[in-house]
C-alpha cells in the first residue's frame, strides 16, 4: 500500500477545508472535532485557553507551537485525559464534556502519546490485540470460557498480523515490546491505534526520538491513514514534516491559537515567527513540556 510513496513523491494535499478568511478559529466545511472556550489553568498559570477551533474531517491537521504552548495539554483535554476548567467540545456532533477517556476512545477518537506507551512486558502481538474494540473475552466471567471468545480472538489475531506486516513489525510479534527500538515503538503504537478502526487519530509528536531511517516510513503511514478515510491531528516540532504532509496547520502559543492556515502561508505569518522567537527564554533549562515549565516558573518564584 505504502510502497509506492517514495521519499521524493509529493503527497496529495487536501484543499478547500475552511470557510472564509484563514484566521484563528476559522470555520471548516466539514469539522469532525470542535472546541469552544476550552480553558485549563494549573495553579495561577493558564496552560490552555482556546476560544474556538475546528478540525477538518478527512484531512491531516498539524498542531504546532513553541515549547510550553499547551499543545499536549490541549490534546489531553480533547481526549478526556485531563479536565478543563470550562468550555465545551464535540466530536462528530457528540459532546465530549465529562466523557471519560476510555469512552472517548470507544467513540473512535484514538490518541498516541509523546513518550511512547508501548506495554513493555506484553508481546508485540498482545499489544496489538489489546487495541481491538468490543472483545467478548474481556469480560471477567466470559474470559473463563475460551470457546466463547476463541473465534473472535482468531479474527483479531489475523487483523493484527496484517497490520504488523504493513508496519514491518511482523518478525517481532512474539518479542516483548520493551525490546523494540524507539522508532519501532512509535510504529507499534500507531498500528495498535488502528486495531480499533478509529475515525480520528491524534498523534502526539510521532517523530520525537525516531531514528531518521524510520522517519519516511512513519510519514507514509500517516499519509496512508488519510487515504483510508481517517482524520489525523498531530503535534509536531519538525517543520519539514509539517510542511510535507499537513493539509492544515494550527499554531498555538501560550495556550491560545494564534494562527491557522495551510502550511505555506502559516509559516510566513509574522505572528507565528513571533510566537517561536518570543518563547525561547522559557526553554533555557531544557524544559520540554508544559508541566516542566510550570514547575520551573514556580521554582523561579520560590527563589525570589
Amino acid at each position: 500500500m505504502s510502497s509506492n510513496v517514495t521519499p521524493t513523491a509529493k503527497p496529495v494535499k487536501s484543499t478547500g477545508l475552511h470557510v472564509g478568511e484563514a484566521e484563528p478559529g476559522v470555520r471548516k466545511v466539514d469539522p469532525i472535532l470542535t472546541a469552544d472556550g476550552v480553558k485549563r489553568t494549573f495553579g495561577g498559570l493558564t496552560a490552555v485557553d482556546v476560544d474556538h477551533v475546528e478540525i477538518p474531517r478527512g484531512a491531516i491537521t498539524a498542531l504546532i507551537g513553541p515549547n510550553g504552548a499547551g499543545k499536549t495539554t490541549f490534546f489531553n483535554l480533547l481526549t478526556g485525559f485531563d479536565k478543563p476548567d470550562e468550555g465545551k467540545w464535540e466530536f462528530d456532533g457528540r459532546s465530549l464534556a465529562h466523557v471519560p477517556a476510555y469512552r472517548v476512545a470507544r467513540m473512535g477518537l484514538i490518541r498516541t502519546f509523546q513518550l511512547t506507551k508501548a506495554l513493555g512486558l506484553l508481546t508485540v502481538m498482545d499489544n496489538m490485540k489489546l487495541g481491538a474494540k468490543g472483545q467478548t473475552g474481556e469480560s471477567l466471567f466470559r474470559s473463563i470460557l475460551p470457546f466463547v471468545w476463541r473465534k473472535q480472538e482468531d479474527e483479531i489475531e489475523a487483523k493484527a498480523e496484517e497490520l504488523l506486516v504493513r508496519f514491518k513489525l511482523d518478525a517481532k510479534k512474539e518479542d516483548y515490546a520493551a525490546s523494540l527500538s524507539g522508532g519501532q515503538r512509535k510504529l507499534l503504537e500507531m498500528a495498535r491505534a488502528l486495531m480499533s478502526d478509529p475515525t480520528l487519530v491524534m498523534l502526539d509528536e510521532p517523530m520525537a526520538g525516531v531514528n531518521p531511517a524510520l522517519t519516511q516510513s512513519l510519514l507514509d503511514h500517516i499519509l496512508d491513514l488519510k487515504s483510508q478515510g481517517m482524520t489525523v491531528l498531530f503535534v509536531e516540532h519538525d517543520m519539514h514534516m509539517v510542511r510535507h504532509i499537513a493539509d492544515w496547520v494550527i499554531v498555538m502559543a501560550e495556550g491560545r491559537i494564534v494562527a491557522e492556515g495551510d502550511p505555506h502561508t502559516v509559516m510566513e505569518d509574522p505572528a507565528v515567527i513571533d510566537a517561536y522567537l518570543g518563547a525561547h527564554h522559557d526553554t533555557d533549562l531544557g524544559a520540554t513540556d508544559t508541566e516542566n515549565v510550570e514547575v520551573l516558573k514556580e521554582l523561579i518564584d520560590d527563589e525570589q
Binding site: 477517556a101 476510555y102 484514538i110 489489546l130 473463563i144 491505534a193
Partner: peptide
C-alpha cells in the same frame, strides 16, 4: 484460565501503563 484470556491481557496492560490502556478504550 483468566490470565491467558483477553481479560488477563487488559489486566497486564494496566500493570504496564494504564493510560495507554485507557486510550485504547
Amino acid at each position: 484460565l483468566i490470565m491467558r484470556s483477553p481479560w488477563g491481557r487488559v489486566i497486564k496492560g494496566i500493570r504496564e501503563d494504564e493510560d495507554a490502556v485507557r486510550a485504547l478504550g
